[in-house]
């Protein structure tokens, strides 16, 4: 294997009630690469992303992240709380709505994972939190309350909080969709710098120009299926499938030259 796979999904299926939201998805993310997940609303992008860290437990399929693998094919025992938690602790996730803990200060948010989950001494966790806050440009906000921050600042805290677990991969679910346009750039800049450091990332995004410029590969989903997958520039600029073309035609004004 020339490129090592960091995330590997094989035959993943998920239904909510009678609706099959993920239909036999197979997806790989190479170590150190960035994969962007695009597609229309309701196509199952979030569900797929949430399957990677088991926030949504699939009905069927095989999921591996780094060294950890879980098999959901029929006949396998469902993982318990302990296994699920251990699995999730190795991945970082950033949500559209930030989901910072409102009753904790910024630094406490970042310390929460290391202190509670990794049992890191508080002093060490605080040092780590300050390093990470500096990294996302918020060194001066350590003691602030989340509700005093702008959306862009909150999302950067959320990224720092996820990084504090020293994750093997980072998952982003429309990390900039809830932001005012002028705040999008500061968050994308942080994601870009993580990509430059070689962080393995899977991100759901509606920022096509960003996907084209930062992602190595782009995956287009529709109705719970992967319709097209390939090098980022190729999928976004010269898609081969009509469905991909139709979807991307909505974005052309946002796709200026890079």
């Amino acid at each position: 294997m020339s490129v090592q796979k960091m995330i590997e999904l094989v035959g993943v299926r998920k239904s909510f009630g009678k609706v099959e939201v993920l239909k036999d998805i197979t997806l790989n993310v190479a170590r150190g690469s960035v994969v962007a997940l695009i597609g229309p609303s309701g196509s199952g992008k979030s569900t797929l992303l949430r399957s990677v860290n088991l926030l949504t437990v699939p009905d069927q399929g095989f999921i591996r992240v780094g060294e950890q693998a879980l098999d959901f094919t029929r006949g396998h025992r469902l993982p318990g709380d302990r296994e699920l938690s251990a699995f999730r602790a190795r991945t970082g996730m950033v949500f559209q709505t930030f989901n910072l803990f409102p009753h904790m200060s910024v630094e406490e948010n970042v310390m929460a994972g290391p202190v509670k989950v990794l049992r890191m001494p508080k002093a060490d966790a605080r040092t780590l939190a300050h390093e990470l806050l500096a990294k996302v440009g918020l060194a001066d906000k350590a003691t602030a309350r989340p509700d005093t921050l702008s959306g862009g600042q909150r999302q950067r805290v959320a990224i720092a909080r996820a990084l504090a677990m020293k994750p093997e991969v980072m998952l982003f679910d429309e990390a900039t969709s809830a932001l005012d346009p002028e705040l999008v750039g500061e968050v994308l800049a942080v994601i870009r710098s993580l990509a430059a450091e070689g962080m393995t990332m899977l991100l759901v995004t509606h920022e096509m120009a960003f996907a084209r410029d930062v992602a190595d590969r782009v995956v287009f989903m529709r109705d719970g299926c992967v319709v097209e997958e390939g090098p980022a520039r190729q999928v976004i600029e010269t898609p081969s499938q009509p469905a991909t073309r139709a979807f991307l035609s909505h974005f052309h004004n946002g796709l200026g030259p890079s």
Binding site: F87, F95, T97, N99, A112, K116, V117
Partner: peptide, 13 residues
Amino acid sequence: GQWDAGRALGMRR
């Protein structure tokens, strides 16, 4: 979203 955030960090129930 608070449940999601805690779970994503690997917190036990």
